[in-house]
Design a protein around this nucleic acid. Structure first.
Length: 973
RNA sequence: GGGCGAUUAGCUCAGUCGGUAGAGCGCCUGCUUUACACGCAGGAUGUCGGGGGUUCGAGUCCCUCAUCGCCCACCA
């Protein structure tokens, strides 16, 4: 191959364009359920269509692609299922914000259908962008199977699941406090709230004990006095001696004339705080709400949707909250019930969108039951815990299993309804109040019975007397819900909605509801598809730790419910990328790094290699952010940590370039004079290649990506490039030895392409294609024969080399060479011998060391730039020589006309000091009686041998120093 | 408040079985050696956060303190 085809610097952009489309054209990424190969499956954590991918996505997708490519090469029918998430609240919020900024409109101006249409348009744009980013990174997803959590396939799975949950009484209607934006009249998600510390006030109010002879009162403190109108209890700590006699008694709630109980609650009340009495307003405070559930307290809702007070507030009805507060305070004061008012720093919740305070608001929501079944058998949460404790699902690193289990142990029911427009609409129709009466006489009751028998609908028809276990709905209100199986069952929908008997629930499902189905919905469930049969359960899930509870746990739950099996066998939790100061990267903070910028700057392989080398078991990893200029002039964020990823593929490229330039006359069938290689270096490098292949395989099996990246880099750079290729250069120039050298080069390069491919797919494909041009027929590690290589490294076999490729003798010999050559280079540097000057060293050595050096004379001459070398069993130190004393040899280097006694003395003294330090430590240990008697014999033996070696080395150095006519220091102790 | 993690070279991090510490970048010296200056050769750099314990021996195991970060809950 001519150098013209092989630019000095690897051009990642060119390779990316060429080979990605090449892979797609050949369909390598497409999995085939009909294939006899065993399956290996990963479903992508679907990125939100809210925006572009960030560096965390890049890390996660690099990990997944490494595994998928590796398994594909191992002969698995590898499926990487791609797709995106509709991300309910997040996406709707993004589009609504833009609507407001650009057109000054709210969603109510547009209406439900028009807004949803806008969001679809946004989705199309970002989905395209996200999927394209994945392609740029080289991700080998099966694009023909791309899914979206809100597409028809997923929608069917969602509706079927909801229906089955409804039938199984795993879904119920309950109350929950939501964050209510009184201005926009809408529910707001937790992450759409911001806090502000404000200087408020704390009012202390006296509640009189009912029918108390001595006029006893309880003092309660509150930051929101107006909510007292909804109080349904006052709580004290059960162990508080001050109030023991009052527990169970009642209070006269001022201003209302209502009687409320005094309850004992250890959770809500901290007896050391304030007066030790807490007013309980279940409908307007999350803690009080929980307390209310514990004590079966009524929940009195005081609010209208617009923030004014309702009829439950009696005389205050119709007034806005602010005014109610003023009047309540004034009225309390007038009645002498206000004890004190003091300034108090408190935190207020505000809606991100309207910038107005959030009101906790009690509303009807749908819940999925997490607790155990009425018969005591494990419910959803317990089954999901069991899946992990029994290792049906293994979480790596295993410390995350704890957070998974801890969260599930609470068994808190999952609120699945959201007051949004973007998402899967809840397939439930409510009976409307006006329809009562005429409904009974209509044809509907009969139809409903029939449809139910046909399995098209299910219903919950509850009269006030019914009690459902765990159901926290208001027991006084009857309801009738119809759950519909098929969305397009127009016959049913029309009949239900006719005459306004039923209306569909306006809410949509929590986005995690559809995400929880992802591992089976994407494979076609509820249909029994060949894909489902083959690829479920999937093999691995790779994700970030912050969604272990939101997503991982729920996938296990729904997998067990729908599929009767867990969704994946392994879960890998990858680290979170932070900036150099340990802060989360974000667009708004300006410290984010865009993976596409890194690809533009250094290439996809650089991005992937760097991220892989950072993927350790740590939970956070830091990446100092700095700026760089793109070719087009844009200034973008990058990090010095991409340096390794940038240089390494280039190094590999250049080593390959050297090889390819020397393979023009490669002939796999012409083997020179030794089939088993030509020298110790060949046996050594094959042994190393074999060892590296095994370590890399083991590393991938246990998700040690950083270690795998390091092993491969070290082998490629330090063994292959720095030593093996250098050792080979002389042989390549010798026509008799060239064929074997070429054959060796091809074997190692072929192996490196395979081993590196999962991490850096583009440069390895580029090299593989080059190899295929000059050496299409070559050694194949699977068959152990010379045969035509695969047309792409994507589908080449993962290498497993014979165990016999392991030669400790060759390894020892080469390590002797390396050691002595390094010592010679060291001498050169220290004595300022120019690299170009030829030297003629003498090695003093015996036994196997001498053999190794004699055998490698030619190699050593080449790499140390020596014109001759001698190996002798003993020798004096003639004056005017530099001498290096190694543990098993001495090197005597005559320095013609370069006698510098001072420099040589300094050098030897330093060498002596270098020996003295470990020698002192070793001797100290060996003189420790306890060590000698208690440490294992072999440890003692090793140390003794080391001591002998160091002593001998020191002797020689001392003698050497003496010949330099300098005083010698005492023996170290 | 509960949980998890981190603290090792100037920076960012490895360090599996407890046996006297490594890498990349940066730094210093010298090299246009015909694969590579995104390179080659050589070099310097550590009280492994503090204290205590277990052990013949601790970066590694245990306790404790400090600092930083993340997650979850919460502040009447």
């Amino acid at each position: 191959m001519s150098t013209a085809d092989l630019p000095k610097q690897y051009d990642p952009q060119d390779a990316q364009r060429r080979w990605y489309s090449f892979w797609l054209d050949h369909g390598y990424f497409h999995a085939d359920p009909g294939s006899p190969k065993p399956s290996y499956t990963i479903v992508i954590p679907p990125p939100n269509v809210t925006g572009a991918l960030h560096l965390g996505h890049a890390l996660n997708n690099t990990i997944q692609d490494i595994l998928i490519r590796w398994k594909r090469m191992q002969g698995f029918d590898a499926l990487w299922m791609p797709g995106t998430d509709h991300a309910g609240i997040a996406t709707q919020a993004v589009v609504e914000r833009r609507l407001l900024e650009e057109e000054g409109k709210t969603r109510h101006d547009l209406g439900r259908d028009a807004l949803v249409e806008r969001i679809w348009a946004w989705k199309h744009e970002y989905e395209k962008r996200i999927l394209n980013q994945l392609r740029l990174m080289g991700c080998s997803c099966d694009w023909e199977r791309t899914r979206f959590t809100l597409d028809d396939v997923c929608a069917r799975a969602v509706r079927t699941t909801f229906f089955r949950l409804f039938q199984a009484d795993k879904i119920y209607r309950g109350k929950r406090l939501i964050n209510w934006d009184t201005q926009l009249r809408t529910a707001v998600a937790d992450d759409e709230i911001y806090y502000e510390d404000v200087q408020g006030q704390l009012w202390t109010i006296a509640y009189p004990v009912a029918e108390s002879a001595n006029g006893e009162t309880l003092h309660v403190a509150t930051t929101r006095p107006e909510t007292m109108l909804g109080d349904t209890a006052v709580a004290v700590h059960p162990d508080d001696p001050r109030y023991q006699h009052l527990i169970g008694k009642e209070l006269d709630l001022p201003l209302t004339g209502r009687r409320i109980p005094i309850i004992a609650d250890a959770v809500l009340v901290d007896p050391k705080f304030g007066t030790g009495c807490v007013k309980v307003t279940p409908a307007h405070d999350p803690n009080d709400y929980q307390t209310g559930l514990r004590h079966n307290l009524p929940q009195i809702n005081l609010l209208n949707p617009d923030g004014t007070y309702n009829e439950n507030a009696g005389p205050y009805a119709g007034l806005p909250g602010k005014v109610v507060r003023k009047k309540v305070v004034a009225d309390l004061e007038a009645q002498g019930r206000l004890i004190k008012v003091e300034p108090y720093a408190t935190r207020l919740n505000y809606s991100d969108r309207s910038k107005t305070p959030i009101e906790p608001y009690l509303s009807d929501q749908w819940f999925v039951r997490m607790g155990d079944n009425p018969d005591g058998s494990p419910g959803f949460a317990q089954s999901a815990i069991d899946a992990v404790t029994s290792k049906q699902v293994t979480i790596h690193p295993d410390r995350y299993a704890k957070s998974y289990i801890d969260w599930l142990t609470e068994k808190r029911d999952w609120c699945v309804s959201r007051q949004l427009w973007w998402g899967h609409r809840i397939p439930v129709w409510h009976k409307t109040r006006p329809s009562e009466g005429e409904f009974e006489s209509s044809e509907l009751p009969g139809l409903i019975r029939r449809w139910k028998e046909e399995g098209r609908i299910d219903e919950t028809d509850r009269k006030p007397s019914d009690v459902t276990h765990g159901d926290i709905s208001d027991p006084d209100i009857p309801y009738h819900f119809i759950c519909i199986l098929r969305e397009h069952d127009t016959e049913v929908v029309e009949a239900l909605e006719r005459n306004g008997h039923f209306v569909q629930d306006p809410d949509v499902l929590d986005t995690w509801f559809s995400s929880a189905l992802w591992p089976h919905s994407t494979l076609g469930w509820p249909d029994q598809t060949p894909e489902l049969a083959k690829y479920y359960p999937t093999s691995l899930l790779s994700t970030a730790r912050d969604i272990i509870s939101l997503w991982v746990a729920r996938m296990v739950i729904f997998g067990q419910f729908n599929m009767k099996d867990v969704p994946f066998k392994d879960v890998f939790i990858h680290p979170v990328i932070q900036d150099g100061n340990g802060k989360r990267m974000s667009k708004s903070a300006g410290n984010g790094i865009d993976p596409v910028d890194i690809i533009d700057l250094y290439g996809a392989d650089a991005l992937r290699y760097t991220l892989a080398s950072l993927a350790t078991e740590t939970q956070d990893l830091r990446m100092p952010v700095e700026q760089a200029k793109l070719p087009d002039g844009r200034v973008v964020n990058t990090s010095e940590r991409f340096e390794q990823g940038r240089t390494f593929p280039n190094k590999f490229w250049n080593a390959s370039r050297f090889a390819l330039m020397n393979l023009d006359d490669y002939d796999p069938d012409r083997l020179g004079h030794d089939v088993e290689g030509d020298g110790s270096e060949d046996l050594w490098i094959l042994g190393r290649l074999n060892q590296v292949a095994r370590e890399v395989t083991a590393g991938l099996e246990s998700f040690r990506f950083a270690e795998v990246a390091k092993i491969l880099r070290d082998f490629t750079w330090n063994d292959f490039c720095d030593w093996y290729v250098e050792l080979l250069k002389g042989r390549l120039r010798d026509p008799a030895r060239r064929p074997i050298a070429q054959r060796m080069l091809v074997i190692v390069l072929d192996g490196l392409c395979r081993l590196l491919h999962p991490i850096i797919p583009f440069v390895t494909e580029q090299v593989w294609q080059g190899l295929n041009q000059v050496a299409p027929r070559r050694f194949d590690p699977t068959s152990m024969e010379v045969q035509t290589a695969a047309e792409s490294v994507c589908i080449a076999s993962w290498p497993t080399y014979p165990e016999t490729w392991n030669d400790p003798d060759a390894e020892a010999i080469v390590s002797h060479w390396r050691e002595k050559i390094t010592a010679l280079r060291n001498l050169r540097a220290e004595r300022n011998i120019p690299p170009s000057a030829k030297i003629a060293p003498t090695f003093v050595a015996t036994g196997s060391v001498a053999d190794a050096l004699t055998r490698g004379a030619g190699q050593i001459k080449g790499l140390a730039n020596a014109e001759s070398i001698r190996v002798v069993p003993r020798a004096d130190h003639p004056p005017g020589c530099a001498v290096a004393v190694l543990t098993d040899a001495e090197i005597i280097l005559p320095l013609d006309g370069l006698i510098d006694k001072k420099a040589e003395t300094a050098r030897v003294r330093k060498a002596l000091a270098d020996v003295d330090k470990p020698l002192a430590g070793t001797r100290a240990k060996l003189s420790n009686e306890a060590f000698l008697t208690r440490a294992p014999a072999e440890v003692v033996e090793t140390l003794r041998a080391k001591e002998a070696e160091l002593s001998a080395q020191r002797e020689t150095l001392s003698a050497l120093l003496a010949t330099l006519d300098e005083p010698v220091g005492g023996s170290p102790r």
